[in-house]
Design a protein around this nucleic acid. Structure first.
Lengths: 249, 249
DNA sequence: CAACGAATTTTGTGATCACAAATGAGGAGC
DNA sequence: GCTCCTCATTTGTGATCACAAAATTCGTTG
């Protein structure tokens, strides 16, 4: 006995796979804000029955990743400026807290991992690989928060990232044109090395504030975002079945 | 048209009713930490099929209100001291933020409502009505947070209260023996009147810190709480069906 | 008498079916 | 030409069924 130090028995249910697929599509920006999804459509696209889709989508709705009109289909939420600012302030509070705890506990090994990820970001960015860039930036943040070793906090933060996910694409031009990221990450790593919780919090707070303030400025108050691809609505008609990039692994 | 200023079309689905029932039972302390629940048992107790129960329980598990072994039944989480302290720090950050925003926006009418609830708490407490007392204390907090007018923040806070819910019973003796509550609430109300966001945050932070530090001190590190009713396990056997207080309205 | 193992029961999972409410298309009326 | 009504279709909801994995029971063995 005592053989499960690292969580064995991972969840292989269809529900989970559907949940992960939708979540991944959401964070990868594969859904347009405002886009509608029906249960049957998702079930068809993933080749499963309605049952696991319902449970997965229901959960996502509860987490705020999708929203649902009274008894109708779900859609990717349209964010107003106010809502983005709300998420910004919550994320500042929580990610600041996580950074603080991380700075108190960080081991050399953990700091090394952060440094490695920071390097990968730099590599991807100089190669113009925006996909890897965004992925690694996310990885850096969550590697940092994982150091805090606070499971509930981590889960809440994941929920918040899920909500901002579809909008974080918009950030990329800003990333490249005004690269404050590299220095920020260097300062964070230094803060962890010296176990300076206050500095770590400050750096994360500024980072989140900067990113989400920028996104908020792109939004008007009615749920529209500036460079929204205009071919969002008006699908589901015409000849081609409009193959949607949704895959179940 | 334009007739739904106040959210009409409330959710009447069975899923929602099951969810609310379980949630209410949880916050009312009607479940013992560690208690196990099977889907079929809940379905039977509430007189519905498995389908809505699954969706409701799944959501509660995702919210951390219940936990689930790999593929087995759900149970009310056993909290370790570390987990309570984690929840404490998250709640301090978020409820402090909400109090701050509330202080900035509070109207005379909203402050009046808070004052009325504070009075009802005092009445219930002097009458020794612990049930109403706890209910109204909760009402006071959420009335305060609702003033902040930040729907996402409110939802996250509700999720956190849900997790601490089964343990908040333990607080009641402390409430009565060391009544710091009335003065705290008076100070909060004064802070809202003068729109003093800093003071409002400080009061809420101290309140949450005090309450959850107290609960944490009752817990050892293995998930047991001091005055746990010992007849928690070992049910489900013997003659009587052990009528469980779970009702669907 | 304690520990192991096979048989039985329990329990979550996923698919399917029936149904009512909401949606959208098409036609009648002003 | 525009609005309103009606009917066919779409869509979420809840119940039921079949099934495999996990838990429990109980008999057997050392």
């Amino acid at each position: 006995m005592a053989m499960s130090l690292i969580s064995t028995a991972e969840d292989t249910s269809l529900r989970r796979q559907v949940y992960d697929s939708l979540r991944e599509a959401l964070t990868a920006g594969r859904f347009v804000p405002g886009q509608k999804l029906t249960f049957r459509f998702v079930a068809g696209a993933l080749g499963v029955s309605l049952t696991p889709v319902r449970e997965a989508l229901r959960r996502l709705v509860a987490e705020g990743a999708f929203e649902m009109q009274p008894n109708r289909s779900v859609r990717v939420p349209l964010m107003t400026r106010a809502k983005i600012l709300e998420l910004r302030d919550i994320r500042i509070a929580l990610e600041g807290l996580a950074a603080e705890k991380a700075a108190e506990r960080a081991s050399k090994r953990q700091i090394g991992r952060l440094r490695r990820i920071a390097l990968e970001i730099a590599t991807a960015r100089s190669a113009g690989d925006s996909v890897t860039d965004r992925l690694k930036v996310r990885e850096f943040h969550f590697a940092l928060y994982a150091i805090a070793d606070q499971p509930t906090l981590l889960r809440v933060i994941e929920g918040l990232w899920l909500q901002t996910g579809p909008y974080m694409n918009l950030l990329y031009p800003e990333f490249v044109s005004q690269p404050r990221g590299p220095e920020t990450r260097a300062r964070i790593i230094r803060a962890l090395q010296s176990h300076d919780a206050v500095a770590a919090r400050r750096e994360i707070e500024n980072d989140v504030r900067h990113a989400l303030s920028y996104v908020a400025d792109l939004a008007d108050d009615s749920g529209n975002i500036a460079p929204a691809s205009p071919m969002a609505a008006k699908r589901r008609r015409g000849g081609s079945k409009a193959a949607v990039p949704l895959e179940l692994y």
